[in-house]
């Protein structure tokens, strides 16, 4: 890994760590949320930005992680550590099954199939209302949210836990896209027929990408539930499938650092504009249109195009 790549990504983590000591409580809490959602966006980006597969159903993986963590924690009392692991496994298993079926399609059909699977997961959560309490959701008690002795409901610990997960996801994907298998994913995005005729098993690589992407998204969902103490069906709704697409487009698809800035930008865009007017979605919408017009490759994508061609 080249020094400047390491410096840039390590630098971001260092800045976020410094902000922990500097930020006022309100923004401190926001940033913790942004970092967890950025993990979700990073997971989405593995499939969309690096493999070139556009899913409209990633909320199912986020929700699988969240419910796979929350339900056993709340009803079986297995402890936060095991529950987090259960969340990861749920998302990975769902991604494997969905991948095996959805990857028989491509392009628009893949979008529709993932959307349908995600809707099925959402409806299943509502149908199992006896345990999930449907839209109302499950509130996790403070005592349940103790992770290796750390009280995740404490704002300081919560921030640092979110940062740790974010750093892990960031460096994991940075490592992944520089591996031979990661380079094949990029090759598939660019020209899958060519990659196939270089002897690469496209289906297997795509399936691996779906599972990795789904598992990282699930980790974000599980962490979100643990850190903010709530597991609800809202997170399985279709807008939570659209958000990661927007974040990644804004931040820069196929860049490691982009998803974080996409989430940060959109979070504060909505936060600031809702302080000005009740029609805040209008302001957000206009900003999105402008960004799409003038930086179609997203923030980090534009940076790469203009001056940092080495940006991974």
């Amino acid at each position: 890994m080249t020094a400047r790549v390491l410096a840039l990504h390590g630098g971001l983590i260092a800045v976020l760590l410094a902000l922990h000591f500097l930020l006022p409580a309100y923004h401190h809490g926001n940033l913790a949320r942004v970092m967890v959602l950025a993990c979700y966006a990073i997971g989405y980006n593995v499939l969309f930005g690096y493999t070139g597969l556009l899913s409209l159903g990633h909320a199912m993986f986020f929700a699988a992680g969240m419910y796979g963590m929350g339900l056993p924690l709340h009803f079986l009392g297995i402890g936060a550590e095991l529950a987090f692991l259960a969340g990861l496994l749920s998302a990975a298993a769902l991604a494997l099954v969905v991948g095996l079926l959805a990857l028989r399609t491509a392009g628009v059909a893949f979008m529709i199939v993932t959307l349908m699977f995600s809707e099925a997961v959402y409806l299943t959560i509502l149908l199992a209302g006896k345990w999930t309490r449907g839209d109302e959701g499950v509130v996790l008690e403070r005592a349940e949210r103790v992770f290796f002795g750390l009280d995740l409901s404490d704002p300081d610990i919560r921030y640092l836990a979110a940062l740790a997960l974010f750093a892990l996801c960031l460096f994991l994907t940075l490592w992944l896209v520089r591996q031979p298998a990661g380079r094949v994913l990029i090759a598939i995005r660019e020209n899958d027929e060519r990659a196939r005729l270089l002897g690469y098993d496209i289906f297997r690589h795509k399936l691996a990408a779906v599972v990795i992407s789904g598992t990282i998204s699930g980790a974000a969902g599980a962490a979100y539930g643990l850190l903010f103490g709530y597991v609800g069906a809202t997170f399985a709704e279709v807008q939570y499938s659209i958000f990661p697409l927007l974040w990644v487009l804004l931040g820069g698809a196929g860049t490691i650092i982009g998803p974080f800035f996409g989430v940060l930008f959109m979070f504060y865009l909505i936060d600031l504009s809702s302080g000005i007017t009740s029609a805040y979605m209008l302001i957000a919408g206009i900003a999105l249109v402008l960004l799409t017009l003038f930086a179609p490759q997203g923030l980090a994508g534009e940076l790469r195009r203009r001056r940092m061609r080495w940006l991974p």
């Binding site: 380079r183 094949v184 990029i186 090759a187 660019e190 020209n191 027929e193 060519r194 990659a195 196939r196 005729l197 270089l198 002897g199 690469y200 098993d201 496209i202």
Partner: peptide, 29 residues
């Protein structure tokens, strides 16, 4: 892909390269 793994290679009639990846990376793949 399995035939390629056995030792067959094919170059396309209509040029099919990874246009946005560096020349060296095309060959490295």
């Amino acid at each position: 892909h399995a035939r390629v793994a056995l030792g067959m290679a094919y170059t396309f009639q209509i040029t099919s390269v990874f246009a946005r990846l560096e020349v060296a990376e095309n060959v490295a793949l």
